[in-house]
Design a binder for these strands. Structure first.
Length: 337
DNA sequence: CGAGTTTGACCGGCGC
DNA sequence: GCGCCGGTCAAACTCG
């Protein structure tokens, strides 16, 4: 599908991708100072990451945990801007000797590339909207099909998932609207939009060129509808108790029609500890229909993953190994200079 | 027939 | 200014 000239070019162009750029999408402040990291999460976690309501929060609040010493945070989220060209953040899976590498050639670079193309633009968006409007009006002269010329970038979350399934079912319904060959990667990148009306959440899915078993999923924006808008996979939200302190809200994921069962999740040791040790890192699903606008919240009683801790160890289907790898605020822009 | 996918073309940003 | 590349559009197509 991708244009052949582009594809061949992509494969032949081995120029390095610079890594020392910033992730300047409108990442909430909670991510400031941390870059990316590895997570292995059971199926369902990604949904909760993607869905954040006013009372809840995201996985990334993990990194605000006061009991996380800086070393730990760094271990989880190595700042991309400081990851050396040769640096690898390696977590050794518990089940085999293979390691998932954080190299400058895959996940980090994906975001880096975006950063490069957006860091300046987004600052303009924030501080210089008039200029953009001028640009957009000129664009319309060229191509009327552009409907939303002044596009505002949404927060982005990127995850690496170790799976052989290309499209991870995260509970939401997605419509694919494009696919492109990616430079330096034999695997195409697919573009998806949430099918919910007026929900502008986008998702990009691609495979790591370094490790084809890793799927990199990048979410952009936040869903403006309850989770899940259209049940896909009998996902239920069990809002048992409102809890900013002791109650437990939990998701229950049942997986009715996955034909390809995945191997057991490879919980990376550190994250596994984090997950198990603290149900406080879970998600608050209270007020599940609220607008998921907030990324940074004080610590709530939250549940990362499906309520039963045993689910951590069972077959979690498609999202057995989710590795969050990239969150970066504008801050590192200074660092790289 | 509607929803979703494929795919070629187009656009804009960025580096050289 | 030009070419590369990521992102998006939209018509054609497929599928249930």
């Amino acid at each position: 599908m991708e244009k052949k000239p582009d594809h061949s070019k992509s494969n032949s162009d081995n120029s390095n991708i610079m890594t020392s750029t910033t992730f300047s999408d409108q990442i909430p402040a909670v991510y400031s100072g941390v870059g990316g990291g590895f997570f292995d999460m059971p199926q369902g976690c990604l949904d909760m990451l993607n869905y954040q309501d006013d009372g809840g929060s995201s996985l990334f609040d993990l990194f605000q945990q006061p009991d996380l010493v800086p070393e730990q945070k760094r271990h989880l989220l190595p700042p991309v801007s400081t990851v050396p060209e040769t640096a690898e953040m390696v977590n050794t899976p518990t089940q085999n000797s293979s390691s998932i590498s954080w190299s400058s050639n895959d996940a980090a670079n994906i975001v880096d590339q975006e950063n490069k193309s957006r860091s300046v633009q987004e600052e303009d968006d924030l501080h210089d909207g008039d200029d953009d409007q001028e640009k957009s009006t000129t664009n319309k002269h060229l191509k009327p099909k552009k409907k939303n010329p002044k596009r505002q970038r949404e927060p982005r979350f990127a995850f690496m998932t170790k799976t052989n399934i290309d499209h991870l079912d995260d509970g939401y319904r997605w419509r694919k609207y494009g696919q492109k060959a990616v430079k330096n990667s034999p695997f195409p990148r697919s573009y998806h939009r949430c099918t919910s009306v007026a929900c502008g959440v986008k998702k990009r899915v691609e495979r790591s060129s370094d490790d084809p078993s890793i799927v990199i999923t990048t979410y952009e924006g936040t869903h403006t509808h309850p989770y899940p808008m259209t049940p896909r996979g009998n996902i239920e939200i069990l809002s048992e108790t409102t809890n900013h302190g002791g109650g437990v809200s939990s998701f229950r994921f049942t997986q009715p029609h996955y034909q390809h069962r995945q191997p057991q999740p490879q919980l990376l040791p550190y994250f596994q500890n984090q997950t198990i040790q603290s149900s406080s890192l879970g998600f608050n699903t209270t007020n599940a229909s609220a607008h998921p606008s907030s990324y940074s919240h004080p610590l709530h009683e939250r549940r990362f993953c499906p309520s039963s801790s045993s689910t951590l160890l069972r077959d979690h289907g498609l999202l057995e190994d989710v590795i969050q790898f990239q969150f970066q605020n504008d801050k590192p822009k200074e660092e790289q200079n």
